[in-house]
Design a protein around this nucleic acid. Structure first.
Lengths: 184, 184
DNA sequence: TTCTATTTTCAGTAAATACTGAAAATAGGA
DNA sequence: TCCTATTTTCAGTATTTACTGAAAATAGAA
């Protein structure tokens, strides 16, 4: 990873090396963390890269920094934009698109929760309800055990979903102080 | 999926078919949900299967229900036991091991949160701190942007981690009523 | 309109992940 | 002790997922 502005003298300073090492570690590890949570490694790495860069980057810069193909960079940038974690910016006079990440950690958190709710939690709840309906009216002990368990899961998830909705709707300035107080 | 006790008459009743269909849907969908969250499909399916069965199952029964190999069943049962979501039970007089899932949804939730904290959140926080240290003392604007962002992430995650710890330590009987009140 | 920088797509391929099945190890019963 | 039901391991293979690179499409400039 190169310190991008005017890399003119061939030899980087010790400071640059140290920064690049730290950034590389961050990008690489963020990728690993992402994949533990079902997010593709490259997508997480691009996200990390944009998070720690003060300036927006082009597709080509992302390709260069992470040594990935155009197609890969493109697809994952679009995917990140789909989540709302990254947005495209067009600079006046320039034709190509730049990308920047949402830097505000609270906003980032809200986006991720909202999207996970929409993409994973709600569908899961619907599936549960559907399964419960399918077994509706059955009387065997096996059927009752099934329905009981499915209902418990569904109710719990509804509750969790509701709590998350409310947290995410609340203001950063009301939740964070609450959390800090809660921790004491 | 067969209604297990004494499947003697070859032809299943309409009720049995309906239950089996509902259970199959549940197992299959729980697998899909799991994989969206970074959990291997089979492991999630075995978990689902054990969740909705009132009686513990043997490795062979799991293999039969899900049509998977012994190695696969074995590995994923062990993995589930590693999470604490499933435990082995040995019936007196019998030599083989049976497996049953933790059925209580609140306990399940706590186990999952605790394990995710331990396996994913804490390591991620450590990585962040490590990256911040690596860039410590650097003064360039690029370095400051990096450090600032990494610190914000790390602080947020510490806070979230703390909140989760406290939630998970609390009693079901204090948190669930709280959540229901919170939702109103 | 043409020209070209840029974005988008996608068939083919590579890499990562999960699974099988059989052999080896283990542990209770006699 | 030996015998065998059961568990565990793991090399080989299959499946899924991610990536490449080049061709096609698009859209601003002239």
């Amino acid at each position: 990873m190169k310190t991008d502005p005017s890399e003119t003298s061939g030899i980087p300073t010790a400071e640059q090396v140290r920064l690049d090492t730290a950034r590389d570690a961050f990008v690489s590890q963020w990728g690993t963390i992402g994949s533990a949570w079902g997010i593709n490694r490259t997508m997480a790495q691009i996200h990390a890269l944009l998070l720690i860069r003060p300036e927006p980057l082009t597709t080509d810069q992302v390709m260069g920094e992470l040594r990935i193909s155009r197609g890969n960079a493109h697809t994952n940038l679009r995917e990140l934009a789909g989540w709302g974690l990254v947005r495209g910016v067009i600079r006046k006079g320039e034709r190509k698109e730049y990308f920047e990440a949402e830097k505000d950690v609270w906003k980032m958190f809200c986006i991720i929760i909202r999207e996970r709710k929409r993409r994973e939690i709600r569908p899961a709840i619907n599936v549960l309800k559907d399964c419960i309906e399918r077994a509706d009216g059955l009387k065997s002990p096996e059927a009752l055990a099934f329905t009981r368990q499915a209902r418990a899961l569904s109710e719990f998830m509804e509750m969790a979903d509701g709590v998350l909705s409310k947290v995410v709707r609340s203001e950063r300035n009301s939740i964070i102080p609450w959390a800090l107080r809660f921790l004491k």
